[in-house]
Design a binder for these strands. Structure first.
Lengths: 189, 189
DNA sequence: GATTGACCAAAATACATTTACGGTCATCTA
DNA sequence: TAGATGACCGTAAATGTATTTTGGTCAATC
């Protein structure tokens, strides 16, 4: 089997289990059943290996977000489904969850950078969908960059942050009612 | 002069200059020109002294936020002015800025708790204003708790977070246009 | 020519020792 | 004699140091 692939999978396993900092190159080599030196013939260093693993994860997330949308459904319904899916992915997917954790309690630069990149990716993904809906005539012209950013931050706040400072999570119904009445409604043509 | 007051001022000065963790009770005693034991006749411990200082600061912030509003102006205009003022206070006021800093790089529980309390205070302040506007018939009935939370988080994201991941800050105009067209507009009766 | 693991400098960790700090209370003074 | 004080105490943090671990290299190997 492809050596590069085996290394990638081994790395994904280790990063998922132990996080970035606690994963050692020896560890990865052992899991992948290769010598440590072999890793460096495919990846320049630990951080590049990490980035490659994360890129793969981002693609999985995108795929799952797309799967959450329903052909023919309204922009609001699909945008909601997509965002909820990605936020669920964020706390369900072993690697993503681990990285969020690591970011909270240690401060590893490589992890911060990667998390930032993921968020940028999500925002630009949302933006794509908005622009597509505008082209289709479902939404009115607007500042798509800012709207995408606002949507993402709003969902992050309502789904993730709220629970940290209140004793109960917000129900999805309450979130939908709030955003449907405010942001989403204002986007309609 | 009132001993309690002198201690409070000395503490405010020290917390502002060095943060919570790096402020020592000996330090405060020296600045206040009192024996260390005296502090403990007014405040049970360092954290209570800290809380008292922060309560004072919250009141200042409230006063400044109120001063930013204009009698007779629209809800949107005043809410915007109030929120922008509080966010400016957040990075201008020596103590507040220092605490945000300390929270970012050290993880002092007392500081985290206090920052959370301040945010709660801001949100409930915004909520008050929303409810007042509803009573006056300027805004429609809505989920005031969530709207207040969303507004605060949106401003935080647009004014504070945006700059951290983009090379230029958002202009106030762009923020106003975004929120005016979405959240604020939807609140009108 | 691809693969490997012993090897190296640098970074992280563990440990021992010292220092600093929050909080107390017997003493002092007004 | 009631409030103020600072020397004092136990603990927690900081500091210094020895030891281990780790990312990355490269000469030897297959």
């Amino acid at each position: 089997m492809d050596r590069r692939q085996e290394i990638l999978e081994a790395a994904a396993k280790s990063f998922s289990l132990f996080g970035y900092k606690a994963t050692t190159m020896d560890q990865v080599a052992k899991i992948a059943n290769v010598g440590k030196g072999t890793i460096y013939t495919f990846f320049a260093n630990k951080e590049e290996l990490f980035n490659a693993v994360v890129v793969k994860m981002i693609n999985e997330m995108r795929t799952e977000a797309d799967a959450a949308a329903v052909e023919g459904a309204s922009f609001e319904k699909n945008a909601h489904a997509r965002l909820m899916q990605m936020l669920k992915f964020r706390e369900t997917h072993q690697l993503y969850a681990k990285l969020v954790d690591e970011e909270r309690e240690i401060r590893t630069p490589a992890v911060s950078e990667v998390l930032e990149a993921i968020e940028k990716e999500i925002v630009s993904y949302i933006r794509e969908k908005i622009e597509k809906a505008i082209r289709k005539g479902e939404l009115k012209q607007c500042d798509t960059e800012l709207i995408a950013y606002l949507l993402f931050k709003a969902y992050l706040a309502l789904v993730v942050d709220w629970g940290k400072t209140h004793d109960a999570e917000l129900t999805e119904k309450r979130i939908v009612e709030l955003l449907s009445g405010t942001v989403f409604n204002s986007l309609l043509l």
